[in-house]
Simulated scan of single mutants.
Amino acid sequence: MPVTSRNTDTRRNILDAAQRIMARRGFSAVGLNEVLSEAGVPKGSFYHFFASKDAFGEAILRSYFTDYVADMDRVIAGADGSAADRLMAYWQQWRQTQSVDDCQGKCLAVKLGAEVADLSESMRLALKEGTDAVVDRIERAIVAGLEDGSLSVDGEPRAAAQVLYDLWLGASVMAKIHRSPAPLDTTMTATRQFLHL
């Protein structure tokens, strides 16, 4: 069947509905009928758009990370000030989005990471590629900060980017567990220290 604008819109509606629901409840707890109902799509049409629930999960993650890194690029490129200011604007946005809904957050890497990495190799790889893309952008921001003198790190920019991303992921999990933004606030302080700001 040829790809049409209507097909693309319907597929996108399904993915968007799934992201909203799975950000709250995870992957395994959500049934396909619930997602299709939320998207306003007839139940019989799911397999027209996705070959399996695994393929659906992979598509959700790829769509999520495509949107996430585009937004990340806007935040890091669009903020005023030095490269360090722009990178800190990204971390501030992270803190805000992970503090919503009693610190349950909106990050699918946080919500689904451990769950789907064991369920499906294709979803694990989609998570890996998506998180690598995030770390790539953090690394570029660190390099820009080193070039304009607005920050410094001990060691290589890639290793620093990976440490910071891992730190923020862990803090987001802890914020969910404690239902408190305190781990995010501690991580913000540690990030400033790590970047010598």
Rank of each mutant, 00 (worst) to 15 (best):
L125T: 10
I60R: 01
R6V: 15
G31R: 09
H48P: 00
Y68L: 15
G57P: 04
E34S: 07
V35N: 02
A171N: 03
G113S: 04
Y68M: 13
A70M: 09
R124T: 03
G57C: 07
E156C: 02
Y68W: 08
I60D: 01
M123N: 03
M123L: 08
H178K: 15
S120I: 07
R12S: 14
V116C: 00
A77Y: 12
T189A: 08
V153K: 00
E115Y: 05
A126S: 11
L164K: 02
M123Q: 04
L146K: 02
Y165R: 01
W91K: 03
V110Q: 01
S180V: 13
W168Q: 06
A161F: 01
S45D: 11
Q92V: 03
D54H: 03
A117C: 09
M72L: 15
G40L: 13
K176S: 11
A126T: 05
P181L: 04
V75S: 05
A39Y: 02
A29I: 11
V116G: 01
V110F: 05
V163P: 00
A70R: 13
A159T: 14
V134A: 03
P157G: 06
S63I: 05
G44Y: 00
K111V: 08
T189W: 02
P157D: 11
S5M: 04
K106A: 14
N13V: 08
P157S: 06
R137H: 10
F49C: 05
L36F: 11
Y64K: 05
R25Q: 12
A159G: 07
G78E: 08
Q96L: 14
V100W: 08
D16M: 08
D16H: 05
I76M: 14
T189P: 00
M22N: 00
W168M: 04
V41E: 13
R25A: 10
A70G: 15
D132T: 07
T191N: 03
I76T: 14
A70W: 09
G149K: 02
D154P: 04
F56T: 09
Q96I: 14
A59G: 08
A17E: 08
G149E: 06
V116I: 09
E115M: 04
T8R: 06
A126E: 15
V100N: 07
S45E: 14
D71A: 12
W91V: 00
N7M: 10
G155I: 04
F65D: 05
L167R: 06
G170W: 01
A59T: 05
A59E: 06
K176G: 12
A79V: 14
R137V: 05
D73K: 09
A109D: 06
G170K: 01
R74L: 15
A141H: 04
R25D: 13
Q93N: 11
S45R: 14
D132K: 00
L151K: 10
L164W: 07
D185R: 08
A77M: 11
E129D: 14
A70E: 15
Q92I: 02
P2C: 07
Y165I: 01
E156N: 10
E129C: 07
R140I: 14
